Simulated scan of single mutants.
Amino acid sequence: MIDFASARRRLVNSLKDEGIIRSDRVERAMLTVPREEFLPSYLRLYAYEDTPLEIMYGQTISAPHMVAMMCELLDLKPGLRVLEVGTGTGYHAAVCAEAMERRGVVYTIEYYPGLALYAVQNLAKLGYLDVVHVFIGDGSKGLPRYAPFDRILVTAAAPKIPPKLFEQLSSDGIMVIPIEEGLTQVLYVVTKEDNMPHMKPVTYVSFVRMRYGEE
């Protein structure tokens, strides 16, 4: 039997040593959420290897260091309204919820209905559905009914900032999004200045491409 708790602690310690995990909030969240519970049984062995893993529909669950990095960049705290584009298995949404001490709400959109259902099952099993609300649809359009959002997390690469997502970001909000630039992708932190995007590059990344409803 794998001691998942010990493996989780070793990974978190490593991410702290690398300077990726910087806050107590993100450390606590990464220690609390069992990544193995968000993986198909055949992948659980790799739950605490710091690597992305391919799941159904050709999608991936991000590497733990990327989940931690994006959560740090979002500056999560209790009481926020967070929009996530790209639910995947539900793991990242659960980490966001824990980083907010389960006080706040995470709205998350998944393009693939089957994957959204899988995420709901995972989140329900671990008691997150009071904090995390899963929707099926075109993530580039956001969820205008629930806007504005204090934080927007995008886990799929887009050719530019989707205009509807930027509209739904609150005036003092933060968006973290990978943007395609030629043959590469760059992770950006986006804020609003005079209702225009201020983009701060962070690092090169590799995400699946964002899917759009009209495709």
Results as ranks from 00 to 15, higher is better:
Met1Glu: 07
Met1Tyr: 11
Ile2Arg: 15
Asp3Ser: 15
Ala5Leu: 15
Arg8Trp: 12
Leu11Glu: 08
Leu15Pro: 11
Lys16Asp: 06
Gly19Lys: 13
Gly19Ile: 14
Ile20Leu: 15
Ile21His: 02
Arg28Ala: 09
Ala29Glu: 01
Leu31Glu: 03
Leu31Tyr: 05
Val33Phe: 11
Glu36Pro: 08
Glu36Phe: 12
Tyr42Cys: 09
Leu43Glu: 07
Tyr46Ile: 12
Ala47Pro: 07
Ala47Asn: 13
Tyr48Lys: 15
Asp50Ile: 15
Asp50Glu: 12
Leu53Met: 12
Glu54Ala: 09
Met56Lys: 11
Tyr57Ile: 03
Gln59Tyr: 05
His65Cys: 09
Val67Gln: 00
Met69Thr: 12
Met70Glu: 12
Glu72Pro: 05
Leu73Trp: 05
Leu76Phe: 06
Pro78Arg: 13
Pro78Lys: 10
Leu80Pro: 11
Leu83Ala: 04
Thr87Ala: 11
Thr87Gln: 01
Gly90Gln: 05
Tyr91Glu: 05
His92Cys: 03
His92Asp: 03
Ala94Ile: 08
Ala97Glu: 00
Ala99Ile: 06
Met100Trp: 02
Gly104Pro: 04
Val106Trp: 00
Val106Gln: 00
Thr108Glu: 09
Thr108Gly: 09
Glu110Trp: 05
Tyr112Cys: 05
Pro113Met: 10
Pro113His: 08
Leu115Asn: 03
Leu115Arg: 07
Leu117Arg: 08
Leu117Ala: 14
Tyr118Lys: 12
Val120Asp: 00
Ala124Leu: 10
Lys125Pro: 08
Leu126Val: 08
Gly127Asp: 02
Gly127Leu: 09
Tyr128Val: 09
Tyr128Phe: 14
Leu129Lys: 06
Val131Trp: 00
Val132His: 02
His133Cys: 06
His133Trp: 06
Phe135Trp: 08
Phe135Ile: 13
Ile136His: 05
Ile136Thr: 07
Gly137Met: 08
Asp138Thr: 13
Asp138Cys: 09
Ser140Pro: 00
Gly142Phe: 09
Gly142Ala: 11
Gly142Thr: 11
Leu143Ser: 03
Leu143Pro: 01
Tyr146Met: 13
Ala147Arg: 12
Pro148Ser: 08
Pro148His: 08
Phe149Ala: 12
Phe149His: 09
Asp150Gln: 07
Ile152His: 01
Ile152Asp: 02
Val154Glu: 00
Val154Cys: 03
Pro159Leu: 05
Pro159Ser: 05
Lys160Pro: 00
Pro162Trp: 03
Pro162Cys: 07
Glu167Asn: 04
Ser170Gln: 04
Ser171Gln: 13
Ser171Ala: 15
Gly173Tyr: 01
Pro178Asp: 08
Glu180Gly: 06
Glu180Ser: 13
Gln185Phe: 13
Gln185Ser: 14
Tyr188Phe: 13
Val189Pro: 02
Thr191Glu: 04
Glu193Pro: 00
Asp194Val: 06
Asn195Pro: 05
Asn195Phe: 10
Pro197Gln: 10
Pro197Asn: 08
His198Arg: 14
His198Trp: 06
Met199Phe: 02
Val202Glu: 06
Val202Ala: 10
Val202Asn: 07
Val202Gly: 09
Thr203Cys: 14
Tyr204Arg: 15
Tyr204Lys: 15
Val205Tyr: 01
Val205Gln: 01
Phe207Ser: 01
Phe207Leu: 06
Phe207Thr: 04
Phe207Val: 09
Glu214Trp: 04
Glu214Lys: 08
Glu215Asn: 04
